[in-house]
Design a protein around this nucleic acid. Structure first.
Length: 894
RNA sequence: GGGCGGUUAGUUCAGUUGGUUAGAACGCCUGUUUUACACACAGGAGGUCGUAGGUUCGACUCCUACACCGCCCACCA
């Protein structure tokens, strides 16, 4: 054993330890038939990502599971990688180009993509480096990227399979369009936020009449694309207008008045303008009534030539201009404030436009069915359970998935069009000629796929799926492992898939979790994971979600720098109850830092006091003749080991962390180490100090990997703690009676300390103590009590006996099972002493009266279980006796 | 509009199937340089568990309403 430096230098230790693990190859997992597999795939962070508290929480949890299972003897694989994050990354690179005054179209597709790859080479690995700072024990050699050769092959394969099954189609529909990113979005990529808007009441002239019909709208500019007016067929107000014609203001086009029961006659005026090209409802109505779909907008959100004088204006600019014109013409009946939810792009937060365009879709209902069943049958379980319902509700109402994106960065859609006959070819590679007409004029679809179209394959594409391919199956990207043979990869898939647990946040259930389940069942005929653990969202202390734009973030890297990674991990885990959101402030990390410091110092204490050649494990501890405190500690340790194991098995990470904290700090350090200072040279004491600390470090290792490894290396060093075996409680070491009596002694010592503190007895002054008790067993521990109390509460002599009389001028403390007297000639003030005893009396009487009420209730006696009644009667006896003794003690005070 | 979560000490939160004298951390008060740790040690104060009902021998825990805070979903223009 070597010494530990006085101060724990987290940064230095963390670098050293992480390198040690990596050098020894401890992160890597391989197929091993003797071991049970335990695998987790990481939610691949975006290559644009930088580590935030959400990542810190998410990855700490995964690392805890992986380290725990690894120590339990599983072949634990944590599969890492990154996501190409189509829109997000493209936006970042576009912004960078813009600084040089260039747009992506100035470069052209190929050159732009080169730029993105360059950017990725330079910055795409930042998040991985940061995960390493966090201590993540991923099998880095397996690191994947969603744009790898292999994973790209998987994407194409998945597309083609679905297309052939008729589950992918192309069509003109209203989709969510981001005018800034200039691409379609899926429904999930739109964030709805309540916005204070207005409801404008606009008058449309009825043809050949002086009258008007008023419609209400929140988006007046879309009226330029109106192709009808709709009312409810049962609405008496408008009955005679149905089939008539009204004049669209400004553009003066004629619009038919149609009847449709989609219209709610109670909302607004009961009459609705119909704009099939710019509203999903109107689109549906338009189809039903054969209305013209008139697009008035360019992809960038400016109006097109169909908008007349408003052509070229931005949509919101046009709204203002249009309202002005309408107002001049006195066509605005009124304007009401109106709060409503408006969709925003989840990547750039621009207001999304419902937009008519030709896109590719996945038919989801057939995919959803088996995925619903898998959860209904509990083959996949959600933790906490409430997310099961959220998942199922969404799946029951699932809608088709718009998967084409009008951006460049991503997997290009494997569809080719014949320039001559317009035929469609779906293929892995560009066909040389059209199979229908033989033309060679062939163009690939310019669009790329939604990022999530690669993510949903992640749990199996990372294991080399698809397996029946040769061309697309050569592993991971640029150059490495080209020779890897297919059977090996299938072997790994068979071994590690399905994965054990998916750890993620609530926001991602629909985007990713649900889709992975569908993909797993569709493409592999097997669920992708058995458990889904949903942790809370990280918020600031006011409850607002942490985000860069709000500036309310706490940077995990800063915490790591200041307090150490283990402090970060411990703190965030100990305050995160299963699935609850986490409210953070910087001060909350102090508890983790303090705990690190405590661990470090108690370890230093051992180094300074233990024999340098100490060895021997739990088996070498001789229980025979072992003192009480030692038995108590061993029992408490076994209980802790058992509870921690149970907690980790049920995803109760905060409980696990807090239980080890409590054991190590308050039992091991505060009591056992203090007491053992009296017998520090004793071999058994040393063995216990040594082994209990080591085993506790093991229990703590999944949560605080670095400091536990560092201390372990110094204490033991034979093999890293990381691959040591998870501690099991040994029956031999458990002594319940000793445990109970030690708890009593702790109560006695606490009572003595209480007297000392309240009587202001100086620390250096030794005192004598008398304990009156009828408990023979307690008396049999007299010698130990004397040592313990002497060591930690400054007691010179202590006498435990049945027939002790209350000495004159003594301070006392009456417990449930004994009376404690401290003779203090000349130091006891009768008034304060009485007050002290009285407080105890009042509290005991309060408890007794409550008990008496309960025991006086006949139906309690009749109906409550016998043990409970007996237990309450016992309590009453004990308390009554205690009250009597307190009263006597007060009376004898002179 | 539908669904979900929360409401427990000054603060932030635990409290797993109903039976504990309702816990922790931080903060607060008092004392301590006791030979690992002041990022510490010892002692202490502090809660009618959001409100109102109900079920039960018994409710922080189960049920029903309500209030407030927060989140998610939703094509009422």
């Amino acid at each position: 054993m070597r010494d530990l430096p006085k101060i724990y230098n987290a940064k230095e230790v963390e670098d050293k330890i992480y390198n040690l693990w990596e050098e020894k190859g401890l992160f890597s997992a391989k197929v091993s038939q003797e071991k049970e597999p335990y695998s987790i795939v990481i939610p691949p962070p975006n290559i644009t990502g930088i580590l935030h508290m959400g990542h810190a929480l998410n990855n700490t949890i995964q690392d805890i599971l992986i380290r725990y299972k690894r120590m339990q003897g599983c072949e634990a694989l944590w599969m890492p990688g990154t996501d190409h994050a189509g829109i997000a990354t493209q936006n970042v690179v576009e912004r960078k180009l813009l600084k040089g005054g260039k747009k992506r179209h100035d470069l052209g597709r190929k050159e732009f993509l080169d730029e993105v790859w360059k950017w990725r080479e330079e910055y795409g690995g930042v998040i991985i480096k940061q995960l390493k700072f966090l201590g993540a024990s991923c099998d880095w050699k397996r690191e994947r990227f969603t744009m790898d050769e292999g994973l790209s092959g998987a994407v194409v394969e998945a597309f083609i399979r679905l297309y052939k099954k008729g589950l992918i189609y192309r069509g003109n529909y209203i989709i969510n369009w981001c005018p800034r990113c200039q691409t379609a979005l899926s429904d999930e990529e739109v964030e709805h936020r309540d916005v204070d808007g207005h409801l404008y009441y606009i008058k449309y002239a009825i043809k050949d009449s002086n009258e008007y019909i008023t419609v209400a709208t929140t988006r007046p500019e879309t009226m330029l694309g109106d192709t009808a007016i709709a009312v409810n067929p049962t609405d008496k107000k408008y009955k005679n207008l149905i089939g008539g014609v009204v004049i669209l203001p400004i553009l003066n086009r004629e619009l038919k008045v149609i009847a449709d029961n989609m219209i709610d006659s109670k909302f607004g005026t009961g009459a609705v303008k119909v704009t099939p090209a710019h509203d999903p409802n109107d689109f549906q109505m338009g189809k039903k009534h054969g209305l013209e779909e008139l697009n008035i907008m360019h992809p960038d959100g400016t109006l097109n030539k169909n908008a007349g004088d408003f052509e070229g204006m931005d949509r919101f600019e046009a709204r203002e201009a249009l309202l002005e014109v309408l107002s001049e013409k006195k066509l605005i009946e009124k304007v009401e404030p109106h709060k409503h939810a408006i969709g925003h792009c989840y990547r750039c937060h621009t207001i999304v436009e419902p937009y008519l365009s030709k896109q590719w879709f996945v038919k989801m209902k057939p995919l959803a069915e088996p995925a619903i069943k898998a959860v209904e049958d509990n083959r996949i379980k959600f933790y906490p359970k409430r997310w099961r319902k959220v998942y199922l509700d969404w799946m029951y109402g699932i809608r088709d998935w718009c998967i084409s994106r009008q951006i460049w960065w991503g997997h290009r859609i494997p569809v080719y069009y014949c320039g001559k006959c317009q035929g469609i070819m779906v293929s892995k590679v560009s066909p040389e000629k059209c199979p229908d007409c033989g033309a060679t004029d062939i163009v690939q679809d310019p669009d790329v796929l939604d990022t999530w179209f690669s993510s949903w394959l992640w749990p199996f594409s990372t294991f080399g799926w698809p397996f029946d391919q040769t061309a697309d199956n050569k592993g991971r990207g640029k150059g490495e492992d080209k020779e890897k043979d297919i059977s090996t990869q299938s072997e790994e898939f068979k071994y590690f898939y399905p994965t054990a647990c998916l750890v993620t946040a609530q926001e991602i259930i629909f985007f990713w979790v649900a889709r992975m389940i569908m993909a797993g069942l569709e493409f592999c005929d097997e669920i992708p994971f058995r458990d889904v653990y949903i942790h809370g969202t990280v918020r600031d202390k006011t409850g607002t979600k942490m985000s860069k734009s709000l500036g309310n973030t706490i940077d995990p890297l800063e915490i790591i720098k200041e307090y150490g990674t283990d402090a970060l991990r411990f703190s965030i885990i100990s305050i995160t109850a299963a699935g609850q959101d986490v409210f953070l402030s910087k001060e909350r990390f102090e508890s983790g830092r303090n705990f690190s410091n405590k661990l470090w110092n108690v370890s230093r204490f051992l180094m300074l006091n233990l024999k340098s050649d100490i060895s021997g494990d739990f088996a070498d501890i001789k229980m025979e003749g072992l003192p009480l405190a030692d038995r108590w500690l061993l029992t408490a340790f076994c209980n802790t080991a058992e509870s921690v194991t149970k907690s980790l098995d049920s995803y109760r990470f905060n409980d696990a962390a807090n239980m080890i904290h409590d054991f190590l700090w308050h039992k091991y350090c505060d009591w056992y180490v203090e007491i053992s200072k009296a017998s520090i040279k004793n071999e058994q004491t040393q063995l216990i100090l040594y082994n209990v600390l080591k085993a506790s470090l093991q229990l703590l290792h999944p949560v605080m990997p670095f400091i536990t490894e560092e201390i372990w290396q110094v204490l033991d060093g034979r093999e890293p703690i990381m691959i040591s075996s998870w501690p099991k409680p040994h029956k031999r070491l458990i002594d319940t009676q000793a445990n109970d009596y030690m708890e009593k002694i702790i109560a006695i010592i606490t009572a003595i300390r209480n007297i000392r503190a309240e009587m202001n007895i100086p620390h250096k002054l030794k005192i004598d103590v008398l304990v009156k008790s009828n408990d023979n067993v307690l008396m049999s521990f007299s010698e130990e009590i004397k040592i313990y109390a002497g060591r930690v509460s400054g007691v010179e002599n202590i006498l435990i006996a049945k027939d002790i009389k209350q000495p004159k001028a003594s301070a006392s403390n009456i417990l449930d099972f004994c009376q404690i007297y401290v003779p203090l000639q000349g130091k006891v003030d009768i008034v304060t002493e009485k007050a002290r005893l009285n407080k105890n009396l009042v509290e005991s009487e309060r408890l007794v009266s409550r008990l008496l009420k309960k025991l006086g209730n006949n139906s309690f006696i009749d109906k409550a279980p016998k043990e409970i009644v007996e237990q309450e009667k016992q309590k009453e006896l004990v308390l009554m006796a205690k009250i009597t003794r307190i009263k006597e003690t007060i009376e004898n005070l002179t």
